[in-house]
Design a protein around this nucleic acid. Sequence first.
DNA 1: TGCGGTCATTACGAATCGTGATGACGGCAT
DNA 2: ATGCCGTCATCACGATTCGTAATGACCGCA
Lengths: 310, 310
Amino acid sequence: MPANLDTDLLRAFVAVADSASFTRAGEKLGRTQAAVSQQVRRLEETVGKRVFERDTHGVRMTRDGEVLLAYARRMLTLNDEVLALMHRSPTVASVRIGTPDDYATMLLPEVLARFNASYPDVMVEVVCDNSPDLVAEIDKGRYDLALVTRKAGEAGGELVRQEPVAWVAPPLDPAPGHRPVESYDPLPLALFPKGCVVRDLAVAALDGMGRDWRVAFTSKSVVAVHGAVMGGLGVTAMECCTVPPSLRRIGVAEGFPDLPDIDIALHRARGTLPKPVRLLADAIHDLVGDDLLGRDATVDRRTPETGTAA
Amino acid sequence: MPANLDTDLLRAFVAVADSASFTRAGEKLGRTQAAVSQQVRRLEETVGKRVFERDTHGVRMTRDGEVLLAYARRMLTLNDEVLALMHRSPTVASVRIGTPDDYATMLLPEVLARFNASYPDVMVEVVCDNSPDLVAEIDKGRYDLALVTRKAGEAGGELVRQEPVAWVAPPLDPAPGHRPVESYDPLPLALFPKGCVVRDLAVAALDGMGRDWRVAFTSKSVVAVHGAVMGGLGVTAMECCTVPPSLRRIGVAEGFPDLPDIDIALHRARGTLPKPVRLLADAIHDLVGDDLLGRDATVDRRTPETGTAA
DNA sequence: TGCGGTCATTACGAATCGTGATGACGGCAT
DNA sequence: ATGCCGTCATCACGATTCGTAATGACCGCA
């Protein structure tokens, strides 16, 4: 609906305003005086107002011209700024990856550190959101990559690795007469908000065995969930690779249902991806998929049954 | 030197960014998809960077594209703003007049009041500066009119009226033994800054009769000079029409030299002036030139000799 | 393997734009 | 008064640009 002011015309207009002369403006612009005259005329036609009072011996600006001049200068400044910005600085290679908070905290730092060691020029931007939203938005081009959780065997994205999920409880309190929180009924849970795949698995498993539960704590932040469990607010379920050593895994021995593994999947934005993006995707496959991370000495991979036998 | 980003191209670029599709952007713009494709290509050529990663099934923005997008939006916002501004509001008739501080204070208010009564729709903007600067700048189009002082009979501008200049001293102090300030030697003067015509006349006249003087006070503001004289800091010279009744005129009786009249001249900007400007110019000629102002009962025109005879 | 969607490319015709010449007008000097 | 020089406006023309329509290449999906 609104017309577009041709930037060339604005440039000519400003030149005339500055030099108070069509002829000198033409010289400054490398154009003929006739060209400048026509440019100003065209500009005046599109704004619908006369911007200069011409006369056989000079040029004066009208009030409307002064208003336009201020805007024209701002527009040209932006024009020049962005051109300088684009032209000087070589495009910095960057990758934008979306991932849930837990992977961003427990999985990615190691990957990014190693990746950065190999490709120090690539800037990586990590955005946290829950997995379903990430999958929905990657097709809109908001991310180059998305490392998300999906239910085992589902479609969508490339499988990076399968990851066991464990129940996690606070450390045992040696005080006499203390009842562990996992024996409460209904069972208090510290969970991620709705939309989290592991949350769905956990409550489905509890429902399947007829165990009552309630949500005692919710946060999108994995460290907050850690803290809540550590503080005794409840138990949680999370991927083994995100369980800190200070917490205690529990399982069938404590009367908890087995939880299926989940997939850690990598989605790529559509289209031909820039090289840095492919490089980071490869690094994720290599480092996350090859058991190099999150399964080392501090957090071993033993199943809860063996690991939590009292 | 810097290239110009065609606003049409920016509009197309933003449309593509918003719709994430060349085809839909084309529909939104009323163009063909092919046209949009070429527009984006041209834009990319002028910025020297690829702004979209295209692909057979969609479009994603590059990092450079995001930078450009922010600027493009700002530029288009300015574009639309100024067009709305220019298109909606009818040009308000306005006149910009430059004049020295003393006329602006003592002469113009009356003129403008009467002018406004006849032409209430015309907005008058008064800018104060000293006469030589005003004359220099009116040719640059900064003013429509300039009402200035010039030496009697000089060229430049239209003579509005001739105005006598008088020496002005503080009221007499009846206290016994008090010496009037005009008898001091060197004579203390309260003057306008350099560039003021009356100032030049005054010091030239004093120098011509060999009287010593010093500048005791300087201000561009006529009321400040009034105050300085009233406070006894010194004497001054000013056009009769700007002498307030509270001050005392002096002249040859007190040993002061006669001062030549000065001209009050009206300059017009070059070119064909808008009607409101011509109307105000006429009003100034009528009201200032016809002795209707500044020479009435409160400040009469009698020469200093008769007016200050003790 | 075709269908339907994407964007890119091409050829061509119309519209635009800048040039160079010319005209009108006013100031200034002769 | 008259001619000269400067201003901006106008005009016709030629080169360029731009948008269209048609076509092609490619990919995902059924």
